[in-house]
Amino acid sequence: MKNRIVIFIAVLFLSCTPKPEKIEYGLDTCHYCKMNIVEKVHASEAVTKKGRVYKYDAIECMISDSNEVSPEKVALYLVMDLELPGDFIDARQATYLISEAIPSPMNAFLSAFKNKTDALEAAREHKGEVFSWEEIRNKKLLE
């Protein structure tokens, strides 16, 4: 009997562990704008402390959705590195670029980089402005 209870508690605990989900490009829809998620370079996710995953077609959608997905409830904010799309990076550690030379799905021209050096180089090349996570969260991205 004790073994069953221990197993039940372990399964319950592991099922609520916050972790990202694979995005099914072309099938999954953005939680914020309801568009299909088709671009790997701008996809993002917010994962709550209870393990619920919210998928977004653009970083600006994830940031703008904080009214429904309260930052206090979020365990993970994840974005794609513009240079290496396909694997999520921690949005809180990323560096952000706004450049009209690099369109994003909702036309905020927002991209993320794992390395600040890459973001600064892209800003020089594409005439853009670089932001930290805190700076970009405080910026009005979608009207």
Rank of each mutant, 00 (worst) to 15 (best):
S15L: 11
A101I: 05
K40M: 14
K116D: 12
K73H: 10
S132I: 06
Y77M: 02
V41D: 15
A94K: 02
L12K: 01
L14R: 05
V130C: 04
E134D: 15
G128P: 04
D118A: 14
D87T: 14
M80A: 11
V47A: 06
D118V: 08
A108L: 07
L97K: 06
I59A: 00
E72A: 14
R137L: 05
E121W: 05
I37M: 08
V53Y: 10
F8Q: 00
L27Q: 12
A10K: 02
L78Q: 05
L97Q: 03
D65W: 00
I7M: 10
M106D: 00
S15D: 07
I9F: 07
L82H: 11
P103W: 01
E100M: 11
C61F: 00
V11K: 00
F113A: 02
I136A: 01
V41I: 14
I7S: 04
E125R: 13
V79D: 01
V41C: 14
L78V: 08
L76W: 07
F131M: 04
I98A: 03
D87Q: 12
K114H: 12
S132A: 10
R4W: 11
V130A: 03
G51C: 04
E24V: 15
K114I: 08
Y32L: 00
E121I: 13
K140E: 12
E72I: 10
K49H: 07
S99C: 06
R92M: 11
L84F: 15
K49W: 05
A91G: 13
F8C: 01
K116C: 07
A46L: 13
A112N: 04
K22E: 12
M62C: 01
R137G: 00
I89M: 06
D28G: 09
R52P: 01
S64C: 07
G86C: 09
A119S: 04
F113Y: 14
A58S: 13
C33Y: 02
D81S: 06
E60G: 03
P85L: 09
K50V: 12
E24G: 07
K2H: 09
A75C: 11
L120C: 12
R4G: 09
V41A: 15
A112G: 09
E24Y: 15
Y96K: 01
S15F: 10
L84H: 15
K73Y: 08
D65P: 01
K40N: 12
K40I: 08
